[in-house]
Design a protein around this nucleic acid. Structure first.
Lengths: 149, 149
DNA sequence: CTATTATTGATTTTTATTCTCAATAATATA
DNA sequence: TATATTATTGAGAATAAAAATCAATAATAG
């Protein structure tokens, strides 16, 4: 299996973009983070390591990483985008608590069949999906026994 | 089956909020729209009908409508939120084209089983889910035969 | 090595959404 | 019904994420 950086370099070449030091710094730092991350965290970590990559460059690089299938956006309903690795990771979905914001991950293999079905039915070339289930965790259910939902 | 306005009024009462003319104007106009809508469209339509509801009030009302299960947010990746009716509608998911932005709806009944399974496994009180599949429609596939994906 | 052109950083701009606060309207109570 | 209480509203200001601008710089092709 190709490494993330290989995937990215091939993408860069395919699109006739330029392979730059900054983009690869961002990529490397991004893959040093396990789990979800956002622009601010990525920027902060790069800064701490002495890298002078600007936020602008991060904002410009992320769509490329998304486009070549390394990461994807995740919406945690807190005002800005979060990202997570998908390359080399089993596809997973999120179960999010509307009360405390906790996010659990779970796998739902049935969805690849759904994708195939949609491809057949509508002629789409499917690139991926996102499933998010939301509700209230055990703790928040207990706290909100006041009938507000 | 209760009407939308009934559902909303009961919610308002349950939460000890106030039943106001403005909120019900917004609600009525919202249900006069079939399909997806956004804040701007709702505001524009209310204005055209002579209603003087402000955008601020719309922004304040939408979370209530979401909370009582009348509508939900949909993310079309175009910089602002869209909304759609869910009360009294069969649950559906979205197939979105990454090229032209076309959005198709499809039903996926299997997901209610997924919800039940998650409720059992994690003790969550499930309120709903969102599934979005993305890829390229037939037209956009043909246009982009230049190897960019 | 040079020319070309994409990328970068610093900054500004944009724009969706939230916040503020005085005025108003809805509800509870007398 | 009149009054007190308190939520809601509108207008505009504030916030903040993301995108745009532009001169300087760096990567690539020849």
């Amino acid at each position: 299996m190709k490494s993330e950086i290989q995937v990215f370099r091939e993408y860069i070449r395919r699109r006739s973009l330029r392979r730059t030091r900054k983009r690869e710094e961002i990529l490397r730092e991004m893959f040093a983070i396990h789990g979800h991350f956002d622009v601010d965290e990525l920027h902060r970590r790069l800064k701490n390591k002495g890298s002078k990559v600007s936020k602008a460059s991060i904002y410009r690089a992320l769509p490329l990483f998304i486009d070549c299938g390394l990461i994807r956006e995740v919406d945690f309903k807190d005002g800005h985008w979060h990202y997570e690795h998908i390359y080399g990771h089993a596809n997973h979905s999120h179960l999010r608590c509307l009360g405390c914001g906790e996010v659990l991950e779970f796998e739902e293999p049935g969805l690849s069949l759904v994708e195939q079905q949609l491809a057949r039915e509508y002629g789409y070339l499917i690139k991926g999906h996102q499933l998010q289930v939301h509700g209230y965790c055990v703790t928040c259910q207990e706290e909100q026994k006041s009938g507000s939902f």
